[in-house]
Design a protein around this nucleic acid. Structure first.
Lengths: 339, 339
DNA sequence: CTGTTAGCGCGTTCAC
DNA sequence: GTGAACGCGCTAACAG
């Protein structure tokens, strides 16, 4: 078996409490004894049992991170950044991947994080019941998605402004028939698609362009969905000359659909995405860049700060900067040929 | 505070041990009592403290997963699949993201998973010392990368055969100047790049093509690295007409470099990748497909089986199938113009 | 079928 | 500065 605190105490000729104090850097241990204990512990390969110490102290030094799909670039990147911040501070990360409705339901029903974590970072937007469940844990909560909500520290972006800059860019290029590929809102309090869509409608209205429902399609935030949605848009009686895809992955799907239809980008159709996906640059995709890793790191930092200073004031909502990145998938509309 | 087992016991009019037995579905509790306890527990929102129960039972119901970069598609996808298998079986996942040398060193020095996990899945290839450290944990070990090694259940692919099929494809198309973009082997026992490179050399030799060191470049397994490597290859006195990139991300970088050099793919240069990245299809990249999620799920299943049947025989090495996917980045070399 | 008794390994009072 | 005693919440072995 692995060494316990008593093994170390015996080998060092002291009591277990002294070992505990010494190893955790608490005051009240002479330097000589402290050194002796440290060397004995190292020699025995001793590590305090997390189960035992959290049982005794009530702290777990563990953060629960809840993610819809770790495999997707966006979430993987946020998680990566957050994990680095947590582990640098000595916290472990318990990961919950809640991609399917069943796993999600099971998670919120059983709340396996109860009594296991000191805080929770949610990369998914909980609905009312799920929010309440998380709040019932009684630990600090943070999120990198969705709008401000009670009990959570939310680090996000201004979805509205981002989407506006994308659509306005298309308008400024001279496009009048501008389509959009949205993410399904689903049954959740997922405000992002709502905000981005509203921005789309607002900019059209502002430019005096009448909204045509045939120019909206749902891309489900996936590549395949984006492809399907673009195909739908192309089937309209008067297809769009430009498309605002509300995520880069859907934009990539749209590009694939366009290629299959032998349409040239940006000559025949312009495409703007949202996110600045790692591969957006490879593809030359014009997009709204948001600091994905930055949001994960910032949310993690804010969570740690709440753990350190439980009584201080903490911001409920932080917005990170965004900007439009012009690349090669947008251009003025082709001069009208014979209609 | 949250309810403890004693609160439930008191409210249900039974002892704590009966509650424990009832809630874990152990035999020896009458149906009537079991139901009563279940409803009381639900009402009180009781969940057993994992710290306490693992302290008492010695089991943690937690799996440690060690990953080099969660943000990269390959690892994110493997992790996603593995996590689903683990959580379906009632296990939690402790994630360790070891991207930088410092975090990696710290992890193996302190081994925070000690006494915290029932098993470890490693998505990185540990060197000798790191392997020994993991073995010292005394728990089942599995990995989805690298070759067979003692103490680990390894789920992998035949890197050699995969790389051979890629290079042979280029040879069969008629290419004679075939370059390769390799992943740096680094200081680790990372056999993948070695195997893939050897396959490259073997196929060239087999085809009677002399090996030209100027046609090899290191792409560091990243997009940017792939771009740099391709740029290097293009600077050779006689650049390649085809390139085997040892990962799709490097292949995408190569494509970007080629576009910047105004070279057409596959007309001027053919490119083959390795992995079948999610976006390979969007880009039309010819590549060697490997079941990425499949490897994660299989490794997870094998680990769980070891946990269930510690004394049974367990396979040390499993190989998953691979196959070449022909898309649009490969074609016969352009007929020689005036040299 | 159920209750009682001991720990699991540590942190945290208190004394000394 | 150090040690002894207690308890964190639960499971396991033993009675009955």
């Amino acid at each position: 078996m692995t060494a316990s605190i008593n093994d170390v105490a015996r080998a060092a000729g002291v009591s277990a409490s002294t070992v505990s104090r010494a190893l955790r850097g608490r005051a009240g241990v002479s330097d000589e004894v402290r050194d002796r204990i440290a060397s004995v512990a190292a020699q025995l390969g001793y590590t305090a049992s997390r189960s035992a110490s959290s049982l005794a102290s009530g702290r777990t030094f563990t953060i629960g991170v809840v993610v819809p799909y770790v495999g997707r670039w966006f979430f993987g990147t946020v998680l990566d950044a957050a994990e680095q911040v947590f582990s640098a501070a000595g916290y472990d990360v318990l990961l919950y991947n809640l991609g399917t409705p069943e796993t999600r339901k099971r998670f919120f029903a059983k709340l396996p994080v109860r009594k296991r974590v000191d805080a929770v970072l949610s990369l998914l937007i909980p609905d009312e019941g799920e929010s309440a469940a998380l709040r019932s844990l009684g630990v600090p909560l943070a999120s990198t998605v969705g709008g401000a909500r009670p009990g959570f520290t939310v680090v996000g972006i201004d979805d509205r402004a981002g989407a506006e800059s994308a659509v306005r860019h298309l308008v400024n290029l001279g496009h009048r028939r501008i389509g959009t590929i949205s993410g399904s809102s689903g049954p959740l309090h997922w405000t992002t698609p709502i905000e981005r869509r509203r921005a789309y409608l607002d900019v059209l209205a502002e430019a005096g362009i009448e909204h045509d429902p045939a120019l909206e399609a749902d891309g489900d935030y996936t590549l395949e969905g984006g492809e399907r949605a673009m195909t739908e848009l192309l089937a309209a009686s008067r297809p769009p000359t430009a498309v605002f895809a509300q995520s880069d992955e859907m934009a990539m799907g749209a590009l694939r659909a366009l290629r299959r239809h032998r349409l040239k980008v940006p000559d025949d159709v312009s495409v703007v995405g949202f996110d600045d996906h790692e591969l957006a640059d490879v593809i030359g995709l014009t997009t709204v860049a948001q600091p994905v890793a930055g949001q994960g790191a910032e949310a993690a930092r804010l969570l740690l700060r709440q753990l350190d200073e439980p009584d201080a004031e903490h911001p409920g909502h932080v917005q990170m900067p965004i900007h439009l990145v012009l690349r090669e998938t947008t251009a003025p509309p082709r001069p009208r040929g014979p209609q």
